[in-house]
Write a protein that binds this DNA or RNA. Sequence first.
DNA 1: CATGGGATTGACT
DNA 2: GTCAATCCCATGC
Length: 197
Amino acid sequence: MKALPADFYERPVLEVARELIGCTLAHDGAAGVIVETEAYHESEPACHAFVGLTPRTRTLLGPPGRAYVYRSYGIHALFNAVCEPDGVGAAVLIRALDPLAGVDSMRSRRARTVAAPPREVDLCSGPGKLTQALGITLAHNDGSLCGGPVLIGERPEGRRAPELIAARRIGISRAVELPWRFCAAGSRHLSRPPGAL
DNA sequence: CATGGGATTGACT
DNA sequence: GTCAATCCCATGC
């Protein structure tokens, strides 16, 4: 799998969020096709970088092409790709994957917190689920996405670019009206079906 | 220094 | 549908 170059991320975060649908996310022998993303930008209050530079947002405001991984609800690690030029706080949250490789290791990692054997469709159908399935942790924060252990690669050969659906972002309380969530149309691996705008 | 709120998930009623 | 788990850190006194 060929990794996307760093300059792919040094562009408007909405473009990157759309174009990452259909690309692959891989770590430690497991990989999936990205089917759901959300864009965040420092100009709107749902973005962590809205408040400016703090210890938490250091990575988010840093150079593009790196991982921004943070803890959510005290429990889950959420994975983002940092975008736009160094100094601009913007990132794409990866919310769901269509499992492509290493399904067995995904299943065993997910089984540590799920009582029933997880179905394939539930392995990566959420931002906290996919980091667990791939073994991505807070230790990967600020790591390169082009040469690090966590890689984002081009769309697999022979796989068509999916049709996109825009929707409102999930689980936020501010700037809820922005249609900055992007889904692969018809995917069975989404965290939630996209609603009407 | 104390408090409160999450870019969530899974179990339970 | 409801609810607890559990940590980082921004905010306010």
